[in-house]
Nucleic acid binder design. Structure first.
Lengths: 234, 234
DNA sequence: CAGATTGGTAAGTGAGTGCTCACTTGCGCA
DNA sequence: TGCGCAAGTGAGCACTCACTTACCAATCTG
């Protein structure tokens, strides 16, 4: 049969794209180079002409995925406000829930790799979290501080930065329970669950019930975190 | 050298105990039967006289660990109250935090297996969560309902059962970030972090700041979830 | 069109995998 | 005391692992 001849960069990229779902689903040890080669439609030999070791493929995937979070950076320009805070929480919840839902989604595989990273050395999770802390956390923190000044929120025991991560943690495991084909926990339908967990988080963060109610109008259907941000940016 | 001759049950149990940390740290695919046999100080042949396959060893471990949660059932007799609610949340946080801390702790390995289960088929997580829902959730739910009646808490969008799991999710990922030898997130010292996250959860669950403050006295040092329960039971 | 470069593979390599077999050792009990 | 049987093993099975070697066949360059 005729082999499809690709340029070096294209082939490399194709290998990574084919390997990602395998590593995400079966972990590092559970993924063989033979299966990666099969998925990419090439021989193992060619695989090892592009990457010196199996570990190198894994590392390249983790590096790639860390530097690809489009749409989030748009939020950085938004003014700190209670509304922005509610929007971030809502967007975060939606992002994680859709990640768990669509088995082919990019977020799904990112979540799987993150959970796997916890069990291993945690390095991937650390890199990813560093990036999140730089990009999203500041807006959250400023918005929460603003909400406290305005009287929409009451200061709590934990600082805004820790509260941001607590919010993240809540939706992270929540999404994880819905990740397997057979969810580990029964929950109400996604749309309702999303609103429930937002309510919990906003309360936990210190927002008053009045402030939460005032921003319940945000409960418009979002297509994705990015699109919600775009919508708000109008 | 002289082999130590054990009875069938003893040997079987010993194999499981030796295999648990290996599966927890390296996953199913990453753990070899040779290493298990080495850890148990026996030959691979003997291993396969006790278990027909490697999978059977893994399954036996998961089954064992699901049915071993001492101390929790004592809580079931406690009267539903705001104080009990605060105690459960505090105990849950402490249980997860110490699980992440001590690398040899039983909770550590349970957490690792649970996270791994999410990435795989989620079956182990489902079994474990079913058990938790039967044992701990009811006390939490009754206590929260009681707190609402008494005026210590305000009803929220989510029902008590979902709120219980939200609380669990928060501490679960929190613990996961502290699990690797190199934590994925920097946090304040354990004792403070524990109080911070309890504050967040109790707020999220709907408790008024007054009620939370009233039960801040629970912030006595706990040795473990079990001991905290025992202490309260006096 | 010669020749160098590059994308690509068939057919291996030693090391290691889960698992088995023929066999030995030692304890409980008649 | 000696026999039966369970505990225990060394050696090696068939197979898979990550990774190499040796060799094509296109394409580019002059």
């Amino acid at each position: 049969m005729q082999p499809t001849r690709l340029s070096r960069d294209h082939r490399r990229q194709q290998i990574l794209e084919c390997a990602l779902p395998l590593f995400a689903r079966h972990g590092f040890a559970g993924t063989t180079t033979r299966r990666i080669a099969d998925a990419a439609g090439i021989s193992e030999a060619l695989l090892f002409k592009h990457f010196p070791t199996k570990s190198a493929i894994y590392a390249a995937i983790l590096a790639d995925i860390c530097s690809a979070d489009p749409g989030l950076e748009r939020l950085r320009a938004e003014p700190p406000s209670t509304r922005t805070l509610a929007l971030i929480v809502r967007g975060m919840a939606h992002y994680f829930m859709t990640a768990a839902d669509g088995s082919e989604a990019e977020g799904n595989q990112k979540l799987r790799l993150t959970l796997g990273s916890f069990v291993e050395d945690g390095e991937f999770a650390k890199i990813l979290f560093d990036k999140v802390e730089q990009i999203i956390a500041p807006i959250f923190i400023d918005s929460l501080k603003h909400a406290i000044e305005v009287g929409d929120a009451q200061p709590g025991l934990a600082g805004p930065r820790d509260l941001f991560w607590f919010a993240h943690h809540t939706v992270c495991t929540l999404a994880a329970t819905q990740l397997p084909s057979l969810p580990s926990l029964d929950y109400p339908p996604l749309a309702r669950l999303e609103r429930e967990v937002c309510n919990y988080i906003l309360r936990g963060v210190g927002l008053t019930d009045a402030a939460i109610a005032a921003h319940a109008a945000l409960d418009i259907p979002f297509e994705s975190f990015e699109s919600s941000v775009l919508e708000f940016a109008k």
